[in-house]
Each structure stands twice: as C-alpha cells, then as structure tokens.
Design a protein around this nucleic acid. Structure first.
Lengths: 190, 190
DNA sequence: CATTCACACTAGCGCTTGCTTGGTTACTCA
DNA sequence: TGAGTAACCAAGCAAGCGCTAGTGTGAATG
C-alpha cells in the first residue's frame, strides 16, 4: 500500500473514482467497477488505497483543497473593495464547482459516507473555506451592500450556489460567471 | 402483495422507512433493518411492497403530494398580492420541508436511486410543484418586487430554501417562518 | 549479479444482500 | 361455522460485496 503518495498515477485514479462516485453514488460503486475503470483488477486496487473509504476521503480532500486555493487567490486581488470581493468569491465558488465538478458533487452529497476519522480531518478544510465566506459577507454587510443576518445570508448564498450542480448545464448559453453575477445582483441593495 | 393500498398500516411503514432512509441513506438501508424497525421479519416486508424500490417511491410520493397541497392552499389565499404570495410560498416550502422532513430529505437526496419508471411518474408531481413557484415569481417580477432572470431567480431561491435541511436546527431560536421572511427580505428591492 | 521495490495478477474467503418459497395465524363476514 | 383473506414467519438461495493471501514481473539500486 501506498499511504501518502501524491504521484500522478494516484491523482488519475482519484479522478476516475470521483467520476464513478458521481455516476453511481458511493455505495453503489463497487471496488470491481472502480478497478475496471482504472484498467486493473480489483485486488490491485488495494495496493493504492487502504480501503474503499480512503478513496472517498481522497476524492473529497482534493476537491476541497482546490476550492480553498482558488478562493484565496480570487479575493486577495481586492483587499479593500467589498463588492468586488463578494463577486470574486461567488465566481470562484462556481468556477471550482464546475471545473472540478465530480469531486465537489461527491463532497456535497457523499460527505456522510465518510467514517468519523476522515470526516473530522476534512471538516477543518471545509470550515476554513466557509470562514472565507463569512469574512467576505461581513465586509459586504458593513459596506451596506447587502442586508440581513450574517449567518443566514451566508447560508442562503452558499445554498443557492451549491444547488446549481443540480440544474446548471455547462453547455448552455450561460457561463458560471453569469450565474455568479446574477446572484450577486439579485441580493444587492440598490 | 398489496399494490395500491392507502391503509394506515402502510402509511406508518412508509414513515418508518423514510426515517431510516434519512439516517442511513437508501443504499445502506437493508430490508432487514427496515423490517426490524417495523417490528416484522424481513420476508413479511414483501407482503406490503413489491420490492425495495417501491418503498422509496412511496416515501417520495407522499412527501411531494403534501408539498403540493400545502403550497396550493397557501397562495390561493392571496390571489392578487404578489408580495404576500411570494412570502406565503416561501413559508409553505419551509413548513412542509420541516413538518415532513424525512420524506423531503429523501426526495431531495435519494431521487437518483429511483428506477426510470418511478422517476418518470414522480417527475410530473415535482414539475407541478415547481410550476407554482415560477408563477409566483413571475408575479413578483412584474410587480417590480424582485429583479433578474425568472429562470435563475427561481432556481436560486429553491436552492437556498432546499439547502436549509443541511444546516437548520428546528430546536434553535428561529422558526421556519423567520427563515422564509429573511430570505424574501434579502432579495426584495427596496 | 543479487536484492529490493512498485505494481499488477489469480483465486477465493467470509459475509451480506434483496428476494422467494411454502406454510401458519388471526380476523372478517356470509 | 366455515370460507376467504390479510398479515405474518422460518428458512434459505443465488448473487454480489469488500478485502486478503500469495505470487509474478520488470525496472531501479547496491
């Protein structure tokens, strides 16, 4: 087994697993299906991962790491412009959501399948990401751009954004940036 | 087997199944777990339902039927007041969502486990419900209460509302009506 | 040249799954 | 009273599950 390995091979396997988890759901995806998709036999799978759980954790970790990095990069461009920060954060959210769609769908809808240990570890990553949001929203509230309870507002915005994976068609006429701008426009006081 | 049966017994079994599906997820809920929760043996379960799939369909059907009825009752009280209609619709949505929480969580997150036949049948129910929303939102747009693309606005609102099942605590200080009012306040032009 | 290593294979164990079968009990109603 | 039926049970089958043990191979390392 290959515990802490960041090889390209492992990354590719994780990508394939994410795709299958989205298609079938974690529980219905068997190790034999995973192996076939990866072009190996089911036994060989356990050379790369300790067990099926570890594959799930790896998928979710990758997605969340990427989201954090991109969000950071996006808002640090505008240290003192609340509206630009809000817009950049929403854009970054949708950008990662659809660039890395499979991993994020797994993170959003299969989180509960994580065992407690993995869940605890990954919760920190997610909390760090949500803290970024709360920060940006606090700025926007203080600047009078939006109004309402900071807790509820951030939950509503994240809900609206996350739910897009259920209906948004990347091949349609609208870009993720269009969506982000529309949402920001919808909630901003004029 | 007991195909089209609306007996109280069946209703109770469906309620118990919904609870387990939420706790464990559909795939991880075994027929033996269901039977034990129902106080019968696993074989007896198939006297009430053709197969496991039928239980899932029954759970989702119940929840969606209720939502439709309550939404109808709520908005027909205000035939010509766009703001009241919007608020009533949001309140009704959250009211059913938490009154009938288990069934709705299953409907939202286990829909994809339905086989194609059941999915086709239930899609009509869901579409009827969403049509109500589009109607109410069109009225609000025309009245100038909110602004934006009708399609996107309704998706964002439904996303924000549905996502509440992931974070809202019914034992906390806020009522579902508080949430609905806060959301409407957040998006309404002033 | 000998050893080690990553990576893959074959074979299958022990267990759980959804569902079936054949029969029993309790109740309703002519 | 006795026929019909809804509701249940005990037993188990066939298939599929995650995972393990033991082995082979070709490339890198000493």
């Amino acid at each position: 087994m290959n515990v802490m390995n960041e090889s390209p091979r492992r990354k590719e396997l994780i990508r394939l697993a994410a795709q299958l988890f989205v298609q079938e759901g974690f529980d219905r995806t068997t190790v034999r299906m995973l192996a076939q998709e990866m072009g190996i036999k089911s036994g060989s799978l356990f050379h790369h991962f300790k067990d099926k759980q570890e594959i799930l954790a790896a998928v979710i970790e990758e997605g969340t790491q990427n989201a954090l990095i991109i969000a950071h990069q996006s808002i640090e461009q505008y240290p003192a412009e609340p509206e630009a920060r809000l817009r950049a954060m929403a854009r970054a959210h949708l950008e990662t959501l659809f660039a890395d769609r499979n991993a994020h769908v797994v993170a959003l809808f299969e989180w509960r399948r994580l065992d407690p240990a993995a869940s605890a570890h990954l919760s920190h990553l997610r909390d760090a990401y949500e803290a970024l949001w709360v920060e940006v929203i606090d700025d926007a509230l203080q600047a009078g751009l939006i109004h309402g309870d900071r807790f509820l507002v951030s939950r509503f915005i994240l809900g609206a954004l996350n739910w897009t994976v259920r209906w948004y068609d990347p091949n349609g006429p609208r870009t993720p940036d269009d969506l982000a701008d529309e949402l920001v426009g919808m909630i901003m006081a004029r």
